[in-house]
C-alpha cells in the first residue's frame, strides 16, 4: 500500500532501467483503470438499452468477463514496483541493513521462480485456446455469444512477463544493496514504518477533498 515516495532514484544503471520499465508499467496500469471505467459505461449502455429501447447489450456478461483480466493483471508489475502487494511486515520490518536485503532478495527470488512457472502455465492455458487453423483462431469461446477467449487468456502471460522483468530488476537492486551494504538502495520499495506509510496514504487521499477541481494536486505529480 506504500506509494511512489518509497522508491528512491539515482544515477545507477539499475535505477535508470527502473524508470524506463516504470513507464511501461504505468501505461499498463492505466489500461487497467480504463477497463474499470469501461465496466461502468458498459452497465449504463446495458441498462439504458434495455429500458429505453428494449435492446439489451448482447453478451453483456461475456464482455464483462473479457474485461476482467485487463483489470486484474495489467497493473501487477506496477504494484510490485511500488511495493503495493500486501504482506505482513512485522518480522521483516524489524530487520536493518544487510539482513533486511538478504530477506528481501530471497523473497523476490522465490517470487521470480514462481512467476516464471506461471508465465509457462498461463501461456499453456492460452495456447490451448488458440489455433491458427480455426475460425478467429479460436479453440475456446465464451458461453453466450461465443467471443474467442484467447486474447483475454493471453493477457496473463504478458502481464506476468513484465512482472518477471520487474522482479529481475529487484533481484539486481537488492543484490546490489546486499553486496555494497547500502542503507537506502534505489529502485526497490523501501519499508516505511506503518505510521509513515499511513501518513503518505492519507496525504494521497485527502487534499482533493479540500479542493475538488484542483488539477495541481500532489497525486498527479508522478504522472
Amino acid at each position: 500500500m506504500a506509494g511512489n515516495a518509497a522508491v528512491l532514484e539515482d544515477d545507477s544503471l539499475v535505477s535508470r532501467l527502473d524508470r524506463r520499465l516504470l513507464q511501461v508499467e504505468q501505461v499498463l496500469a492505466l489500461i487497467s483503470g480504463l477497463a474499470v471505467f469501461s465496466l461502468m459505461v458498459l452497465a449504463v449502455v446495458s441498462v439504458g438499452g434495455r429500458n429505453a429501447f428494449n435492446a439489451p447489450l448482447p453478451g453483456y456478461v461475456d464482455w464483462i468477463e473479457q474485461a476482467m483480466p485487463l483489470i486484474a493483471f495489467m497493473g501487477i508489475a506496477y504494484v510490485q514496483r511500488e511495493g503495493g502487494h500486501i504482506r505482513m511486515d512485522i518480522v521483516i520490518g524489524a530487520l536493518r541493513g544487510r539482513a533486511l536485503w538478504l530477506f528481501e532478495l530471497f523473497s523476490v527470488l522465490l517470487i521470480l521462480a514462481l512467476m516464471i512457472c506461471l508465465v509457462w502455465g498461463s501461456w499453456a492455458h492460452f495456447a490451448r485456446s488458440f489455433d491458427f487453423a480455426a475460425p478467429l483462431w479460436s479453440r475456446d469461446s465464451s458461453i453466450d455469444i461465443g467471443i474467442p477467449l484467447w486474447p483475454a487468456k493471453l493477457l496473463a502471460p504478458v502481464a506476468f512477463s513484465v512482472l518477471c522483468l520487474r522482479l529481475v530488476l529487484q533481484v539486481w537492486a537488492y543484490g546490489r544493496a546486499l553486496v555494497l551494504g547500502l542503507d537506502a538502495p534505489a529502485a526497490v520499495p523501501l519499508i516505511q514504518d506503518a505510521a509513515a506509510q499511513a501518513a503518505h496514504e492519507a496525504e494521497m487521499l485527502t487534499g482533493h477533498d479540500d479542493a475538488p477541481g484542483d488539477s495541481t494536486d500532489s497525486r498527479n505529480s508522478q504522472g
Binding site: 439489451p56 448482447p58 456478461v61 458461453i143 453466450d144 455469444i145
Partner: peptide, 21 residues
C-alpha cells in the same frame, strides 16, 4: 426478454425474442 444462452438464445432471437445475458 429471455434468459437463454448460446444457440437457444439465437433460436428465440429468430422469432423476435431478445436474449438477455
Amino acid at each position: 426478454r429471455v434468459r437463454a444462452t448460446g444457440g437457444l438464445g439465437k433460436a428465440f432471437e429468430a422469432v423476435g425474442g431478445v436474449p438477455t445475458s
